[in-house]
Computed example of a mutant assay.
Amino acid sequence: FYAMQATSLMKRYILDNVDENDIPEEVKMCCCELAENIFKAEQDGGTQGVSSESVGGWSKSYESSDIRRRNADRAVHDIVYKWLSGTGLLYRGVR
Rank of each mutant, 00 (worst) to 15 (best):
E20R: 13
Q43T: 12
Q5C: 04
D66T: 09
R70W: 02
K40F: 12
K40E: 09
Q5Y: 03
P24Q: 05
H77E: 13
H77N: 13
D78L: 09
L84I: 03
M29I: 03
L89P: 01
N17D: 05
S59G: 01
Y91P: 00
A41V: 00
I23M: 04
R12W: 04
H77T: 00
W58L: 06
Y81K: 08
L84R: 02
P24T: 06
V50D: 04
G45R: 10
C32E: 14
G45K: 10
R68K: 13
E33N: 01
S8H: 05
N37E: 13
Y13Q: 01
N37C: 15
L15R: 08
V50H: 05
A3Y: 12
Y81I: 02
D78Y: 00
A6D: 03
K82Q: 02
Y62S: 06
S54A: 14
R68H: 01
E53H: 10
S52R: 12
D22Y: 10
E36G: 07
R70I: 08
R92M: 11
Y91I: 05
R70A: 13
L89T: 00
C30Y: 10
A3T: 08
H77R: 13
C32R: 12
L15K: 11
A6S: 07
I38E: 02
C31L: 15
A41F: 04
G45F: 13
V94I: 12
L84Y: 05
